[in-house]
């Protein structure tokens, strides 16, 4: 049996997940010029939110998704005004330490509240599948892909056609010009940080039925998201989508076609990223960033 269609389908589904995982980070950096190192913990909080709503109240993760996205946005808004706004003009090392510290604090609170036990949500679609031609489609992954497409499409539509979205792009492009045009930059910053956190929480909700939930799940995802954002080009949403697809295809095809490929997949994917960055240091669609 030809495994190419299966590998291709798995890569596409994984790419959707990776896009959702990285797009919030990309938006946050594009507008605020801050890499939020607590982004992984936002994913973790989304996953726990979905888990507890599913376990205690029987709420399907897809039903809890809008509710948790709003909660994620509120958390981001509060974090921005309470903490992040104070370091906007500080050196990058201060910003990194601050967001890293927020992430660590959230992680440790999660350990205290929920222990280090591994968990997962188990809606029916998490463990069922359909066969289309020669391709096996796991319903949980298809659902996650669909949710990711909807969320990313909504983000792009907001940036493209809404007034606040256009203002956000203006701030990302040239902060000083945006100020001169009368845009409330601080409000846009708060909005962007909130949306960025909401997207991470959404990622957590969809991975809650695919991956294993623990307080430590955020950091490996953050590393992958940063790699995708760098590969695609810092601050470029389209670049992030391309970066996610590049990483997902590299990992999946190495896993399928090399002996013990699963073990090599991440390593080779990151070698590929290094190779691309050597040729094009700004990433696939990145522009020069003034810091």
């Amino acid at each position: 049996m030809d495994i190419f269609p299966q590998a291709f389908s798995d890569a596409i589904l994984l790419a959707g997940l990776y896009t959702l995982m990285a797009v919030g980070l990309s938006l946050g950096f594009g507008v605020l010029r801050i890499i939020n190192f607590a982004q992984g913990e936002m994913i973790m909080l989304g996953a726990y939110g979905a888990f507890w709503l599913f376990t205690l109240m029987g709420v399907d993760p897809l039903i809890s998704l809008p509710l948790l996205v709003v909660a994620g946005f509120a958390l981001g808004w509060v974090l921005f005004h309470g903490v992040v706004a104070k370091v906007l003009d500080a050196p990058h090392i201060n910003q990194i330490l601050l967001t890293f510290g927020i992430g660590l604090a959230i992680q440790h609170v999660a350990i205290i509240l929920w222990t280090g036990n591994a968990r997962s949500t188990t809606p029916d679609y998490a463990t069922t599948s359909s066969v289309v031609g020669d391709v096996l489609l796991v319903h949980g992954r298809v659902t996650a892909f669909a949710a990711a497409v909807v969320m990313v499409a909504a983000l792009i539509a907001w940036l493209q056609w809404s007034e606040t979205g256009r203002a956000t792009r203006a701030v990302a492009e040239n902060r000083s010009a945006a100020v001169l045009m009368g845009i409330d930059v601080n409000r846009i910053y708060a909005l962007s940080f909130g949306v960025s956190c909401a997207l991470s929480v959404a990622t957590g909700v969809v991975v809650s039925f695919i991956l294993t939930i623990t307080p430590f799940m955020g950091f490996p995802m953050l590393v992958k998201a940063i790699a995708i954002v760098i590969l695609g080009g810092l601050g470029s949403i389209a670049g992030t989508v391309l970066g996610a697809f590049a990483l997902a295809f590299a990992e999946t095809f190495v896993s399928y076609y090399l002996p013990e490929g699963s073990g090599w997949a991440e390593g080779i994917a990151f070698v590929l990223i290094i190779g691309i960055l050597l040729v094009r240091p700004r990433g696939i669609l990145g522009q020069a960033v003034e810091t």
Partner: peptide, 20 residues
Amino acid sequence: DELVREGSSDYNPTLAKVRA
């Protein structure tokens, strides 16, 4: 006799080898 990556996002490639 196949190695899988700890914390991998997707085990389907390995499971395809098992199926084969």
